[in-house]
């Protein structure tokens, strides 16, 4: 019993330490490729593979961190409350655009996966791709997707926005704070937001609001769609 407790404590403390250090590095440099979700995950996976440690052993400690995910999602109500003035200022353009983004993302990804002949499990896994990671994982779990694969796809959606977003905005003349913010926040969540910082403060606050709202809207719409249409 005691060795197991010690093992759990060791896993928890080393994960926390790794996260704190790499998060500091990311905050200092600000490159989206240094996001702790990428760096910490890659290092942990590498360590497990090199020392031949099964994932289940790692989860002896990891499960305690995972238990805090649900309450942390609830805490997102705090920034959404702080942004309530922006919600009411731009209510029509933001709400309509978020729903448009959700439908465009869902319909196109399902269409492509059906075309490619992908399995149902993969389709469920892909549906929450545009939501912020913690919500995407919980939605994926709920509808029968594979949460860790959903996280990979969430990252792909985020980096697509962060890398191609500025080019697309230029080509298609998406040239205001509202349109850029809503598009990035609702299609490419937090990773995309790292790029919005380079435009203006207003871009960023509309982006983070759109990210939060589309997570809530998606958590209601995606389970409905997956149960009744697929």
């Amino acid at each position: 019993m005691l060795p197991q407790v010690l093992l759990s404590l060791f896993i928890i403390s080393s994960t926390v330490l790794l996260f704190v250090l790499l998060n500091k590095l990311y905050l200092k440099i600000g490159n989206p490729f240094l996001l702790p979700i990428l760096t910490v995950t890659c290092i942990t996976v590498a360590v497990l593979l090199i020392f031949n440690i099964p994932y289940e052993t790692y989860m002896e400690g990891g499960q305690w961190l995972s238990k805090m995910l649900g309450p942390a999602v609830v805490a997102l109500a705090f920034p959404l409350y702080n942004q309530r003035d922006i919600i009411f200022k731009y209510k029509y353009s933001i709400i309509i655009s978020i729903i448009v983004a959700m439908l465009a993302g869902l319909i196109s990804v399902v269409a492509f996966l059906l075309l490619f002949g992908s399995s149902k499990a993969f389709i469920y896994t892909s549906l929450p791709k545009s939501l912020t990671t913690p919500v995407a994982m919980q939605v994926s779990d709920l509808i029968g997707g594979i949460p860790p694969l959903t996280v990979v796809l969430v990252m792909v959606a985020g980096f697509t926005g962060a890398i191609l977003g500025p080019v697309l905005f230029k080509v298609f003349k998406i040239d205001t704070a509202i349109s850029r913010g809503v598009a990035m926040g609702s299609a490419s969540h937090g990773v995309g937001l790292t790029k919005l910082k380079e435009y203006s403060e207003e871009d960023l606050s509309i982006g983070s609001l759109s990210m939060g709202l589309s997570a809530v809207v998606g958590a209601f719409i995606i389970p409905l769609i997956s149960f009744y249409f697929i």
């Binding site: 448009v100 349109s179 609702s186």
Partner: peptide
């Protein structure tokens, strides 16, 4: 799967940005 997500994200970005504009 990854390719589908990339294309779908591009479509969502452009359509949403345009509609909002």
């Amino acid at each position: 799967l990854i390719l589908a997500v990339i294309i779908s994200t591009i479509l969502a970005l452009v359509i949403t940005g345009k509609v909002s504009r």
